[in-house]
Amino acid sequence: MDGSQPISIEQDVVLARQTVRRLAIECGLRLVDQTKLITAASELARNTVIYGGGGHMDWEFVEEGTRRGLRLVFRDEGPGIADMKLAMTDGWTSGGGLGLGLTGAKRLVDEFSLESTPGVGTRVTICKWN
């Protein structure tokens, strides 16, 4: 990983968005892709605070041939997700939100993976290519 920052409180969600904006520009993503990645990061960072009880965002620049991309990992050591299928259902929420965080973030990026173990924590990895 090229860097990491804590996501513990609500204000850290704003800081995470600002970091992702800077990284996305550095990565050479075009404006629409920057906007999508920042928005996805905002949803996942909020989940880390609200459901995970705080955690971290890690990032790394990735290359594949001539393509460059930005990979972000949101990880927490919270209660985990009991029903992954339900969590990936549009409109379902356990926390009074709109239920668009995980599913919406997935639609906004090129790669998405969700790993969660009840009692251990949750790890969401996303990647956007230029």
């Binding site: 404006l31 920057q34 906007t35 999508k36 928005t39 949803e43 549009d90 919406g104």
Partner: peptide, 14 residues
């Protein structure tokens, strides 16, 4: 609303 924001919102499902 900026165009990139509009595109993102629709894809997000909002």
């Amino acid at each position: 609303m900026q165009p990139a924001v509009a595109i993102t919102l629709v894809e997000l499902g909002l």
